[in-house]
Design a protein around this nucleic acid. Sequence first.
DNA 1: TATAATTTTTAGTCTAATCTAAAATTTTTT
DNA 2: AAAAAATTTTAGATTAGACTAAAAATTATA
Lengths: 218, 218
Amino acid sequence: MLSFAEENYLKAIYHLAEQSGQSVSTNAIADELNTKAASVTDMIKRLSSKGVLSYQKYKGVYVSEAGKIAALQVIRKHRLWETFLVAKLKFNWDEVHEVAEQLEHIKSPLLIKRLDELLGHPKFDPHGDPIPDENGEYKEKPKTPLFELQIEQSGIVVTVQDDSPAFLQYLDKIGIYIGAKIKVIDKVEFDGSMEIQIDGRKTNFISKQVSENIWLTE
Amino acid sequence: MLSFAEENYLKAIYHLAEQSGQSVSTNAIADELNTKAASVTDMIKRLSSKGVLSYQKYKGVYVSEAGKIAALQVIRKHRLWETFLVAKLKFNWDEVHEVAEQLEHIKSPLLIKRLDELLGHPKFDPHGDPIPDENGEYKEKPKTPLFELQIEQSGIVVTVQDDSPAFLQYLDKIGIYIGAKIKVIDKVEFDGSMEIQIDGRKTNFISKQVSENIWLTE
DNA sequence: TATAATTTTTAGTCTAATCTAAAATTTTTT
DNA sequence: AAAAAATTTTAGATTAGACTAAAAATTATA
């Protein structure tokens, strides 16, 4: 059984490993968790002895198969709680992360089973990220940045790359949410900005920077 | 800000103080929390220095006004979560306590506000215990044990004295739940058992021991 | 390839929360 | 009211998790 702190390390290391595809360095972990390299060394020794990481001195760490299963269950819990907060408790996108960070460590298989049922076995969280099932399995949606669509093409918002409160609040304001249908009305070659229509109603002008951070599926 | 462990001590001490009306002894706290007297002494020093307990060596502790407010907020969270688990996630009475012990320590005022709204501002939890409001205020229902009702009298189940899984499962089985209407059909003087009708439908025979543990209001 | 810079580990310290054993205090019994 | 019993506190250790400073190893640079 992993502690709260151990689960946080494992989850962070799992994410870093997925991104890089390589072994994860002590410093990268320390940066990610806002802690010091010495603390990380202590913790990765502990996690290795528990069998969820494999570690060689000075060579960084890999997540073991057992570690991946454990990490995916924490991620599952995090994303189910985020979905619950938005769907049932009317939280905004930018308000869920902190609370889900706490809730993901609650130990109760029945709780997660029932939460999953209450939410109708969702496959994606409010940010469009996939929710692993009880076996750790999930699939990503094939997705492209809004920026790459051509005039007259459309798609459904599935995720955003930037999840800063400022960006999420801006999206809220102009009426963009996960599941919104966006159609490209016009593209301005000069600065990369575009005019879009949201859910067949409002139209809006958005900058290149924004359109690169909104990802869609068909 | 109190830690997880500090909140648990404070809550336990608050309950013990309410029951006895006097100062709470080190050993009583150790018994309640299944820990050792020496650990309790350490913790009550820490909680005193934080202003939630008042403590004199060898004389036991009292909960300060600030301590009562803090304890009632933890109790509020615990009972709201229990209500949520039963009302929304179909937990049984005997399954909620352990999970609520974890959930009560989640730090998020917004979460509790929204949970309270989702549940319709409940005043009592699934065991019939009152849920304090944001200011720590609550009122008990006036209640009597089923055993004391006379033939033809009736009432609504508000709480049970015994909350062992065995007892709660027995109640489930014979169809008794918080909110059930019970009418006394007959009383057997010999052994104190009685015949009751539940929700105007089923009738059942229950022992004296059972009828003493079920409490009703009008 | 030797030196410098960076990264990682080790060694030692700190705090929260726990424990055991012994000492101090209070309560009970005779 | 003195002795015995029970309770409570202190002293000293332990563990998880974090830190700083210094040592060791690796990587980059000249």
